[in-house]
Design a protein around this nucleic acid. Structure first.
Lengths: 343, 343
DNA sequence: GTGAAAGCGCTAACAA
DNA sequence: TTGTTAGCGCTTTCAC
C-alpha cells in the first residue's frame, strides 16, 4: 500500500491532474461543482499533497535557518536561540529549533533533516563526549551546506562562534582571590560535559596563576540542575565543621548556584557573610534572586547574534567563504552573594 | 543569475549528471580521481544540491512534527514543547519548534513552511487578537494537513487541546475565600492576551459565585514579565495605606507573582502574614523561590503530551479522523505565600 | 567506472 | 472550464 498521489485523486474523481492541482492551489478557474467534488475525493482518500514536489518548480525564495540545541528546558539555550532569532528575523529568516537532548544520533538526524528540507543553514551546539562522531558534519561539508558550531570540535575545520569558558571561571576565581578569599571550592558540572571540564580547568588554572595552592579536594562533583546544587549543598555543608567552611563556592552554573543558595538558606548559613557564592551564565532569574547572584555573565545574546550573522553571510555568499572562528568574552557581574573582604 | 544545478556541475566537470550524483551521495563506485575533481568543481561553484529534489524519489520515511509557540524565552512554552517532544520522540518523531512572537503574519508563514517542507503535522499556539485571521488554517485543512490548536479559535472546526484558564483562576480565588481572605485583588495580564481576559473573567466569576462583591478597582493592570510585577507591586503598595492593604493578590502568572514577591520583600511587607500571593502556571522556579509560591499548576507537560498524541494519531490515520476537543484541568499547589486564616 | 534515460509528484503553460 | 504536456533537480537502474 503506497501513498496516493495527485494522479490517484484525479482518476478517482474522473478529472485530470491539472484540475486537481488547481483545486489544491485554490485557483479561481475551477468550476465550483468540480472543486467540491475533487475536495470530497481528496478527503475521502485523506490525500496530502507532497510539499517537496509542490515546491520543486519555481525557485525557492523562502529563508530559513535551523538551530540544534542540546536541551530544550534550559534557559541557556533559549536565550541563545533568542539572539539568533533576532538577527535572523531582521534578515528575513525564520528560525527552526530542534533539540538533540545531548544525543549524538539525534544531532545527526536533525542535521540531515535540515539539509534535506532545504533549511538554508544550521547553527549547531555540538554534542561532545568521549567517542565523538563527526561524520555527519563532513556530510554537510560535502553538500557545501553552511553551518556554524557553537563549540570547537576536534577534527573538523568549520565555522565556530564560542564562549571562552576557561577564562570565565578564571575571572570568578581571580575576583574572589583579589577580594581576600581563601579556601575556595568548586561545585563542578556533569562528568561528560566539556563545558564542565573547561570550567574545572579554569578553576585550576586560576590557582596556578596565583599564590594559593590547588588541591583535588576543592572539586566537588555536583551536576547541572537546581536539585543537584541543593542536595550537594546540604550534603556538603552538613558534613563540614562550621569552623572549616570554605569561604567561597564557585559554581558550574547559575542554576546550581541558586540551588546551593537555597540549601544554605535552609541550613541558616549566611550568604555572603559566612560563605560567598559565584555562579556562571547570568540567567535571567540570577539578578532577581534574593540575594542577587554574583555571576559570570555569558553573552548568550551576542553569541546568538554573532553565530547568526556568520551563518547568514555564508548562506548568501556566491563563493565559498573562508572558515571563521570567533571567541566571545565573559564579564563578571558582582552582586550580593559575594563580599569584598579587603574593604 | 539562476541557481546552479547538478547539470551545471556535470558540464563544468566534464562528466555526466549521474556521476555527480554518485559523488554527492558518497557512492564507492566513483574513481577517486574523478570524485576529487567533481568535488573541486562543486566547491568552486559553491553548489548546494537541492534537498527537495533529492528526496522526491524514494518515498518519505522521515517523521517530523512542528510546533508554533508564541514566545521563545518563556518557560511556559518550553515546558509545553518538552511535553510534546517526549511523546513525539517515543513515537520516533523529531520536533521542530518555531516562534511566532505573537505575530499573525509569522504564524502564517511558519505554518505554510511546515506544510511545504513536509513536516508531517503541526501543533499551534494560535495568535489571537482583535482582528484575527485564520485563512492559513483553512489552507492547511484544504491540504488535509494534520494540526492541533492549543486554544479554541472562533470560526474553524479543528482539533483543540487546551487548558481551562477560567477555572484555574476561579480555583485560586475560591481557595483564598475559603481560607478567610477578603479584599482580594488581581494583578492582570497584558491587554491583548486572551489568557489574560479569561483569567480576569475567572476572577470575576469566582466573586459572583460567592458572597463577596466584585469591583473594577480590584483589577490592577500589570503585564507578564518579572519587571511588570515588581514595578506594579512597588507602585501599588507604596501608594496604599498599610491598614488598607489587600489581603491577597491573585496574579496573572508566576513570573509577575515573583516580581511582586520581590517588591514586597523590598518594601518589608511580609508574605504571607501581611499579604498573600497566588501565581498561575507553576513554572519550575516557583517551588524553589523563597517563600515558595502558592500557584495554580497548569499541566503543561500533560498538555504537550496530549496534543502530540492527538496529532500523531491524525498523522498516521488512513482515514480522516473526526475532530477532537480536549480540555485539561488545573490544580492548586498550596505552598508558602498563602495562609489559612481559618486555622 | 561512467553515461543515458526514465521517472519521483507536482505545477504551469497552452490547447482544446 | 478542463485536459495535455513539458519540465522542476535530482536519483537510479541498466547498458556500455
Amino acid at each position: 500500500m503506497k501513498k496516493s498521489t495527485i494522479q490517484d485523486v484525479a482518476e478517482q474523481a474522473g478529472v485530470s491532474k491539472g484540475t486537481v492541482s488547481a483545486v489544491i492551489n485554490g485557483k479561481a478557474t475551477v468550476k465550483a461543482s468540480t472543486r467540491e467534488h475533487v475536495r470530497e475525493v481528496m478527503k475521502a482518500m485523506n490525500f496530502r499533497p507532497k510539499g517537496q514536489a509542490r515546491n520543486l518548480k519555481g525557485r525557492q525564495i523562502e529563508r530559513t535557518v535551523g538551530i540544534i540545541i542540546r536541551e530544550l528546558d534550559n534557559p541557556f539555550y533559549t536565550a541563545l536561540a533568542t539572539g539568533i532569532k533576532k538577527y535572523a528575523n531582521e534578515k528575513g529568516y525564520v528560525e527552526f529549533i530542534a533539540s538533540s537532548e545531548a544525543d549524538q544520533q539525534n544531532e545527526e538526524t536533525i542535521s540531515q533533516l535540515f539539509a534535506s528540507k532545504d533549511v538554508k543553514g544550521a547553527i549547531i551546539a555540538p554534542v561532545i563526549n568521549e567517542n565523538i562522531e563527526i561524520e555527519h558534519l563532513f556530510r554537510l561539508k560535502l553538500l557545501n551546506y553552511p553551518f556554524v558550531l557553537l563549540k570547537e570540535v576536534q577534527g573538523i575545520h568549520a565555522n565556530v562562534v564560542s564562549i571562552n569558558n576557561l577564562e570565565a571561571t578564571k575571572l570568578a576565581v581571580r575576583y574572589l582571590m583579589e577580594t581576600g578569599h581563601t579556601d575556595i571550592i568548586h561545585f563542578a558540572g556533569p562528568e561528560l560535559s566539556s563545558h564542565a571540564h573547561e570550567r574545572i580547568n579554569g578553576f585550576r588554572q586560576a590557582f596556578s596563576e596565583s599564590t594559593q595552592i590547588f588541591s583535588d579536594s576543592m572539586l566537588v562533583p555536583c551536576g547541572s540542575q537546581f536539585q543537584d546544587g541543593f542536595e550537594t549543598g546540604i550534603d556538603f555543608f552538613k558534613r563540614v565543621d562550621p569552623k572549616r567552611f570554605p569561604m567561597a563556592v564557585v559554581c558550574f552554573n547559575d542554576v546550581i548556584a541558586l540551588g546551593l543558595s537555597s540549601a544554605l538558606h535552609q541550613l541558616k548559613i549566611d550568604v555572603p557573610n559566612q560563605v560567598s557564592i559565584v555562579g556562571n551564565d547570568d540567567i535571567e532569574i540570577a539578578k532577581h534572586w534574593s540575594p542577587a547572584l554574583t555571576t559570570v555573565h555569558t553573552p548568550l545574546h551576542e553569541l546568538g547574534m554573532k553565530a547568526a550573522e556568520v551563518l547568514i553571510r555564508h548562506i548568501e555568499a556566491d563563493q565559498i567563504l573562508p572558515v571563521e572562528n570567533h571567541v566571545l568574552d565573559s564579564e563578571l557581574k558582582i552582586r550580593e552573594t559575594t563580599l569584598d573582604l579587603t574593604k
